[in-house]
Amino acid sequence: MKLTLEINGRAEEIEILSGAPECRFKLGAEPARDALVEIAEPGVYSVLLDGRSYDVYVEDAPGGGLVVDLNGHHFEIQARDPRAWSRNAAGQGGSAVQSVLSPMPGKIVRVLVAAGDDVVKGQAIIVVEAMKMQNELKAARAGKVLSLTAKEGATVAAGELLATIE
């Protein structure tokens, strides 16, 4: 089985030659390697690679893909599938539209513009609050507010689209 993985934004080809627990795999053009892999707990894999022991935590990411944690290091991994919609692909293309995303989970405390407003670079657009800290989201460059999904009092997730500016 062959898969293309996108690991923290970098593409890697991986081929599984034989599956767990006695696993043989090939990463990119590297020679094939062997590893012992067991599921230790739900969501936790124990991997022995060249005799070294790794405890690997796997979780489904809210936006699709996987979050893999290993000794305090985070890996965001997408198994690329051309049929599925990919967030990264959608975000590319270098369009002139600027997306205002929430930098943290929180609550919208103020919306300072309306759709159709002209904004200048650095102008405050929306204020998000969490844990007693307010964060002012500013326009990265001048333009017109195209859409405004943010509503005062609404709860938002990290990375949620709040407004677009043309």
């Binding site: 898969l3 795999f25 590893a35 991997v47």
Partner: peptide
């Protein structure tokens, strides 16, 4: 992260998928 970590993460992600 050490380079070997990315290898282990990739392996687990592939098996998991």
């Amino acid at each position: 992260p050490p380079a070997e970590y990315a290898v282990v993460a990739a392996l687990v992600a592939a098996l998991h998928t």
